[in-house]
């Protein structure tokens, strides 16, 4: 289980501060009047449906949006088009998987500015890359092309690129999208471990029960900040309705606050006779037809 972080630090410990930020792309406004403070050592989940502005909020922290009004300050510096040095892991679906790069070459991109003036890598950087890949459990994949990996391994490659410069702040965009349950749990525990070593973690997710329910602090977004707090406080039918626009009952289970769904019946629901037929086809088979 992920630990609850001390979110109630004093006002001067905030390393990220958004003050009434309205931002977007060009003339389009995506986020409206957003105010948010994140303290050193926090582990925060940005939660919201697709298109709600989660990625945009991360980009705002990186100086990658058009600010219409308000302010973004990261480590006490107001961003004026400059980019703060933080570890950033983009959403995997934005990656060009046909690009000819190996795992090692992607990880070394994280040292593009610090690796020296020559095309080849310094041996200290190579050692560091190997060490991080080992730690993430993909040390033997360094020479593989990025397309030849599973979703969880691909996620780790881009995490390694972010970690190679030992950032104190890590921003991850949908790191658990499209991976299986075991990989997701491993990844969340890895992030938890980093968080325990002092790294502030901000990640986006649209998965309520699978991810957000396990985090210490979540921020619900839907073009604006709907609510923030521990999942047990934030997961209420009213807040979820305003975030997701759907009715969602709340379930308490083993200390977790989970979100249920309105029962729907979709598709044909046959009578006893048809069900009997289906049972016949579903019976375990043995012999030649078995795969």
């Amino acid at each position: 289980m992920l630990h609850p972080s001390a979110h109630d630090l004093g006002p001067d410990q905030a390393i990220i501060e958004l003050r009434n930020l309205t931002c977007g792309y060009g003339r389009d406004v995506v986020l409206n009047d957003v105010s948010l403070r994140i303290a050193e050592g926090d582990f925060v989940g940005l939660l919201g449906p697709s298109g709600s502005g989660k990625t945009t909020l991360l980009r705002a922290l990186l100086g990658g949006t058009t600010v219409h009004s308000g302010e973004v300050a990261v480590y006490g510096r107001t961003l004026n088009g400059d980019v703060p040095r933080v570890g950033y892991v983009p959403q995997l679906e934005t990656v060009d998987w046909n690009f000819p790069v190996t795992v090692e070459q992607v990880v070394m991109m994280g040292r593009a500015m610090e690796g020296g003036p020559f095309p080849w890598n310094r041996s200290a950087d190579r050692d560091r890359a190997r060490e991080i890949l080992e730690r993430l459990g993909i040390g033997d994949l360094a020479k593989r092309h990025i397309r030849q990996l599973s979703g969880g391994q691909q996620q780790r490659v881009f995490l390694a690129r972010a970690l190679i410069s030992s950032p104190k702040l890590l921003l991850l965009d949908e790191p658990t999208a499209g991976v299986d349950i075991k990989t997701r749990d491993d990844l969340l525990h890895l992030l938890d471990e980093l968080n325990h070593q002092g790294v502030t973690v901000i990640m986006t997710t649209h998965e309520l029960n699978a991810v957000a329910a396990h985090l210490a602090w979540v921020v619900c977004i839907n073009g604006e900040i709907v609510a923030e707090g521990a999942p047990s406080d934030v997961f209420t039918p009213e807040i979820l309705k305003r975030t997701y626009g759907a009715e969602m009952p709340i379930i308490k289970y083993q200390g977790l606050t989970l979100v249920g769904e309105q029962p729907h019946t979709i598709g044909r629901h046959e009578g006893v006779h048809a069900a009997g037929d289906r049972r016949a086809t579903a019976r375990p088979k043995t012999g030649a037809g078995d795969v």
């Binding site: 980019v83 933080v86 950033y88 983009p90 934005t94 060009d96 790069v101 991109m109």
Partner: peptide
């Protein structure tokens, strides 16, 4: 490879 992310780095 990725001009947006490169800028963030």
């Amino acid at each position: 490879f990725d001009p947006d992310v490169a800028r963030y780095y």
